[in-house]
Amino acid sequence: MMGTRLDAAVTVPGEEFSRVALTPEAVSLLRKLWARHGPLMFHQSGGCCDGSAPMCYPAGDFLTGDSDVLLGRFDLSVADGGGSGSASDGGSRLAADGGGSGSASDGGQPLEFWMSREQFSYWSHTHLTVDVVDGRGSGFSVEAPEGKRFLIRSTLMDWPV
């Protein structure tokens, strides 16, 4: 894996740390998909279709509700040429593919990462990193035609939750 991961802006009430991140490879593919499909979102479930793979949809195509938890927001815009930022900057920044990013407040819409509340209860002690591998995932996720699939790499958190 090249570069640095992009940590999501914190969205879980009462928490001060990011629960989810993107690899530079995931950021690169997401920018390509965003250009083709418009704003995107992730939903992580424990569903039957593709196990527990994160599913990427055009924003709003998957309806979220009280049974879901917003784990983080990512800013994938490329409005400036500057480096990387932190989750506390209002929407995380990353210099990937030779460009920087603007913030959600620049008019760019953040990519939201949602998880079913039931799945969150099982994964509450883990940090999730979205990565990309070769292979075909679910036909429901927008990366499927690319011959790529998103997957989750999880690590146990070493701080109290």
Rank of each mutant, 00 (worst) to 15 (best):
M2R: 00
A8K: 00
A9L: 08
G14C: 04
F17A: 09
F17N: 05
L22T: 03
L22C: 07
P24K: 01
V27C: 14
L33F: 07
L33V: 06
W34Q: 12
A35K: 13
P39I: 02
F42D: 03
F42L: 03
H43Q: 05
S45T: 14
G51D: 12
S52C: 14
A53C: 12
P54V: 12
Y57N: 07
P58S: 13
P58W: 01
A59W: 05
T64Y: 11
D66F: 07
L70S: 05
L71C: 11
G72Y: 00
F74K: 04
L76Y: 08
S77E: 05
V78A: 15
S86G: 15
A87D: 10
A87G: 15
S88W: 12
D89P: 01
D89L: 07
S92K: 00
A96Y: 00
D97W: 02
S101K: 03
G102F: 01
S103L: 14
S105N: 05
Q109V: 15
F113L: 13
M115K: 08
R117Y: 03
E118Q: 11
Q119P: 00
Q119I: 09
S121D: 11
W123A: 15
S124Y: 06
S124N: 11
S124C: 12
H125L: 11
V130A: 02
G135A: 05
R136Q: 09
G137N: 02
S138A: 10
S138Q: 02
F140E: 15
F140C: 11
E143N: 06
G147Q: 09
F150W: 06
I152D: 04
T155Q: 14
D158S: 11
W159G: 02
P160M: 05
